[in-house]
Simulated assay, not measured.
Amino acid sequence: MIRDILVNLAQGVETDVACDYAASLAASFGAHLTGLSVAYEIDVPPFYMGALPTDFIDAQVLENQAAAEKAAARFSAAAAAAGLSHEVRSLSASLGVAANSFAELARLYDLTVVAQPDPDKPGPEEVISETVLMESGRAVLIVPYVQTKPFTAERVVVAWDGSRPAARALAEALPLLHRTKVVEIFRVVTHADDEDTAGTEVARHLSRHGLSATVRKLPVASGESVASAILNEVSDQGADLVVMGGYNHSRLREMIVGGVTREILNTMTVPVLMAH
């Protein structure tokens, strides 16, 4: 069961989609919700220190502290209004230190919720989300920056590639899958006529947990986008959630040449539960 949820609190936004979604998730499971609010310190390279006035740095520090306090207050008000058991944890650190600290903290929570980076509003979300995914050892639920609906998981697509990250994601998603009406095991295959029993085996495993799942295979030609195939299936099925492994290849390789995880993180339209 999901009893303990952690969420990274956004700053400088009108609506904190991760916070709102995490609150609805916590309410659904009767879970305790913890929000982490970070007052980001200015990480200035030594050779730039002399070029920045001290009063500018001090003003920026105060501004960041005020933003963190505002995010914490907004979280507390929303959690209290929803009748949730909740707490705020505060941290003052540079982005790199904060991301690593958040990942360490996430190891002792059932589920961690973060927001998808908004390309039109650069912020710390990309570093935070990728670090917690890679370093926490737990599943991470990433919420699209355009998300408006509260938590629901009536229709779920499990993107199964047989990898270790996919296996971890499936295992950690089980409490969510028990809230579903429809579970689809989605397999991307190279040729439609290839013998492929992996999806059937996943469905067999889920049946032992009292879950019924259908299996769908989609042949994708070499060079075609697997991420697009997954997202198209999500759209066609009207899915509420995707479950998949993250960074089966190295993160550096995906940053340089692209990859399924990177493309999903950039173009996702529904919440995605990932594990590495």
Rank of each mutant, 00 (worst) to 15 (best):
H249R: 14
D236N: 15
I256D: 02
M255S: 14
I230R: 03
S250M: 00
N248D: 10
N248C: 09
Y247K: 01
G245Q: 03
A229L: 09
V257H: 07
D240Y: 06
A227D: 06
I230H: 00
E224A: 14
L231P: 04
V242Y: 00
N248M: 07
S235G: 15
V220N: 09
V243A: 05
I256P: 01
M244H: 07
S235I: 14
L231K: 03
S225L: 03
L218K: 15
N232T: 14
E254S: 08
N248F: 11
R253N: 12
V226S: 07
A227Y: 06
G245W: 02
H249Q: 12
V226E: 04
V226M: 04
L218E: 11
E254N: 11
S228E: 14
I230S: 03
L218S: 11
S228R: 15
V257M: 08
V226A: 10
A229S: 14
A221K: 13
R253G: 09
S222Q: 14
V220Y: 04
S250H: 00
R251Q: 07
M244G: 05
V226F: 09
V220C: 11
G258R: 02
A221S: 13
R253H: 07
L231T: 08
H249Y: 07
G258A: 02
R253K: 13
G246F: 01
G258K: 01
A227T: 01
A221L: 10
L241C: 14
V220E: 11
V220R: 08
A239Q: 08
D236C: 11
V226R: 07
G246Q: 02
R251I: 09
G223T: 10
V234A: 08
E254I: 08
H249L: 10
P219R: 06
N232A: 15
G238E: 04
H249M: 10
A221H: 12
E254K: 05
E224K: 13
M255I: 07
S228Y: 13
V257F: 13
G246K: 00
V234C: 01
E224G: 09
R251D: 04
I230P: 00
H249S: 06
S228F: 15
S235V: 15
A227R: 06
G223F: 07
S250P: 03
A227G: 06
V257T: 02
N248E: 10
P219W: 05
N248P: 06
L218R: 14
G246M: 01
M255R: 13
L218F: 06
A227H: 06
S235T: 15
V242T: 00
Y247P: 00
R251S: 02
G223V: 11
Y247A: 04
H249I: 08
D240G: 05
